[in-house]
Measured scan of single mutants.
Amino acid sequence: NKFNKEMRNAYWEIALLPNLNNQQKRAFIRSLYDDPSQSANLLAEAKKLNDAQA
């Protein structure tokens, strides 16, 4: 399933972002599970926040 693969990839990328705190990571990951079709958008948002907090 395409969404499962995208979701799994996004999950690990988000989990490993160095500048997000655990609460932020959990919120993004919860959103991934709520709507796997938004994986790419959620990952992009997480990366933006990660960069902003660098």
Rank of each mutant, 00 (worst) to 15 (best):
Q23T: 09
P36A: 06
F3I: 09
K25P: 00
D51H: 09
P36N: 04
Q24W: 03
Q24Y: 03
M7W: 14
K47G: 04
K2F: 11
S39Y: 14
E13V: 14
A10N: 05
N4R: 03
D35G: 04
A27H: 06
L49T: 11
F3N: 13
A46P: 00
L20W: 00
Q23M: 11
R30M: 10
A40P: 11
K2T: 04
I14K: 00
I14A: 00
F3M: 09
L20D: 00
S37A: 11
L49Y: 07
F3A: 07
M7H: 03
F28H: 01
N41Y: 15
K5C: 06
L17K: 03
N41H: 12
N19Y: 14
E6K: 04
E45G: 05
N21G: 08
L42E: 01
R8I: 06
N41Q: 13
L49F: 08
N1F: 01
Q24R: 04
L49D: 02
Y33N: 03
N19I: 02
Q23C: 05
Q23E: 13
L49H: 05
E45Q: 12
L16Y: 15
A27T: 12
F28W: 03
K2Y: 07
P18R: 15
A52R: 10
A40T: 08
L20H: 00
W12F: 13
N21I: 08
A46C: 03
Y11G: 04
A27W: 15
L32S: 01
A15P: 01
Q24G: 01
K2V: 08
A52W: 12
W12G: 05
I14E: 00
W12Y: 14
A52G: 13
A15W: 14
K47W: 12
D35C: 06
A40V: 11
W12Q: 11
N1R: 04
D35P: 01
N21S: 10
A54Y: 11
Q53T: 07
N21P: 04
D51F: 12
Q53M: 12
I29S: 03
E13W: 15
L20K: 00
K47N: 08
W12V: 09
A46L: 01
Y33E: 03
A44Q: 12
P18L: 11
A44S: 12
S39E: 02
Q53S: 11
D35H: 13
I14W: 01
Q53H: 07
N41E: 07
S39H: 13
D34T: 09
N41M: 14
M7V: 09
P36Q: 05
S37N: 04
M7Q: 10
S37G: 08
P18H: 10
P36C: 02
L42M: 08
Q24V: 05
A52D: 08
A44E: 06
Q24F: 03
N1S: 02
N9C: 06
I14R: 00
Q38P: 02
P18T: 10
E45D: 13
L32D: 00
